[in-house]
Design a protein around this nucleic acid. Structure first.
Lengths: 283, 283
DNA sequence: CTATTTTACGGCACTCGTAAACATT
DNA sequence: AATGTTTACGAGTGCCGTAAAATAG
């Protein structure tokens, strides 16, 4: 049973006549006769009663008619959904740094979902390095990361400028703190490299690092005097979070961090991704 | 977009690999590659990401996957519904004399519907001649009629034996009644011929006929003294109907009427019709 | 004779398989 | 080298059109 056969079948059923169906389909009439006969042989039952003028459906024909209409309907919808100017729909998987997801994305994603409710958004948090791996592994279609990317395989645009600040326990000088711990996200976290860099430049070498999964976890540990971290000011300066931590400004260029949105080069992006990029703010 | 293409597409999506899909489908692998490429060209977008090991769906591929599954599902259901041993289903149109429909069919149809609830029963009432026309015009699949049929085009079996009785107003001799009217159904009614026959044989020639659409209408007019009619005893002897009418026995062979169920010869009957015939009582 | 469906037949496009090339690990 | 995808090409099937026959009013 093929789609084209069903279209022919439906045309005959609709017209009540093989010749008129042939006209409608721009087929020669004998061809339609043959295709109908094939269908009937395949099913082992007649689908039409042959009358002196035209044909009419048998009981079996009526049953098939019902299914055929639903099937043809679905193929039409499928074509529409995949056509060039379809409304953005289908899945859109995005990976993002934890901090960006916390501060920048909520309003952005809400706006996106309001405009394109047919898209099934899927947001996962991951450090930049991991995000890039997911992207190249086709697990996500785009990612928010910090740091450079291989321009061979990946295209990107700058989206957010963040000012990084050092977060430390109150009344403590991070550089002279005893048994210093740095609190960072999972491996691949771009903040970690920056923090370690800065510490090295300031002569502070001995420290341990502790990996935590969430912003709240890091800030709580800092407030408890466990260690220091480095985070975007926009993340820390939310009123409910900045208690019991001291913010220390960092020197240029460490303080400057650019968040980029990245996607695979050499690939026609889905409509959902295209309109997502169009919605991104200029940096 | 053809069904077979969709099956190939789904196999690749399921296996995550063109070669394994080819194995599953018993195709050569290059063929599957080609068919997928065709699909992609037709839609103008890639459906799979080519990875070093196998392939995985793109966003467009996921959308199509959804539709393809539903379409394949429907084709399977259609095949099942039209298969040899499917449960009886689909439409079954029956035409019947008014009297048979009133007395004999209610329990029969109820029983049928209880056993085969998937069949869409469609019962229409019509005089025997009209029923035969509908049958040969494929408007109904079977009919209950009285009288002979052309055995060339129509097959039949005897189903009910009725005793016909003359229905007349109380205290009136039908044969001497003034300005006699005979009350019958629409033209083509088999009772009418019998009644006219009997009147002629008994020397009664002058009368008019009145056509009424329902049993209740006929009996009410008889009770009101308007005229006489001829009906099966089983129809008249229902308690709520036999008031204010006199029943006169008729001589052989007029009193004997056989109701037959008829269907088109030279045609494979639908399953719904086959099981309907099996449910009919022996006469 | 008109309208319609059925059958017979030939060309051609499309699908499948073989085989070799290409890509990636 | 091994695994998997792409490309090139020849063979056969099945679809479509032409044409003529059958069927019915």
């Amino acid at each position: 049973m093929e789609i084209n056969e069903l279209k022919i079948f439906l045309a005959v059923a609709r017209q009540g006549s093989i010749s008129r169906a042939a006209e409608e389909l721009n087929y020669v009439q004998s061809n339609v006769t043959t295709r109908i006969k094939q269908l009937e042989e395949r099913f082992g039952r007649p689908l039409f009663h042959r009358k002196s003028k035209g044909v009419c459906l048998t009981a079996s024909g009526l049953i098939l008619c019902d299914y055929a209409q639903r099937i043809i309907q679905l193929t039409g919808e499928a074509h529409d959904a995949l056509s060039e100017n379809a409304v953005p729909q289908g899945p859109l998987a995005i990976s993002s740094m934890e901090t960006t997801a916390a501060v920048r994305l909520p309003s952005l994603l809400a706006d996106y979902h309001r405009r394109y409710p047919q898209v099934a958004l899927n947001l996962v948090s991951a450090p930049s390095a991991e995000s890039l791996k997911k992207l190249l592994d086709y697990q996500v279609d785009g990612a928010f990361i910090a740091g450079e990317v291989d321009p061979q395989a990946i295209e990107s645009c700058e989206v957010f400028e963040e000012e990084l600040v050092l977060v430390a326990p109150l009344d403590i000088d991070p550089l002279t703190m005893e048994s210093l711990k740095i609190l960072v996200f999972r491996p691949g976290c771009s903040y970690r490299a920056r923090l370690e860099n800065w510490l090295r430049q300031n002569g502070r070498l001995g420290y341990h690092s502790v990996e935590l999964g969430s912003i709240e976890g890091i800030l709580a540990c800092v407030a408890a005097g466990m260690g220091i971290s480095i985070l975007p000011r926009s993340v820390v300066e939310r009123p409910h979070l900045m208690q019991n931590c001291a913010l220390h400004e960092l020197p240029e260029p460490v303080r400057r961090m650019t968040t980029r949105f990245v996607w695979r080069r050499h690939e026609k992006p889905s409509t959902a991704l295209q309109v997502f990029r169009e919605l991104l703010p200029a940096p």
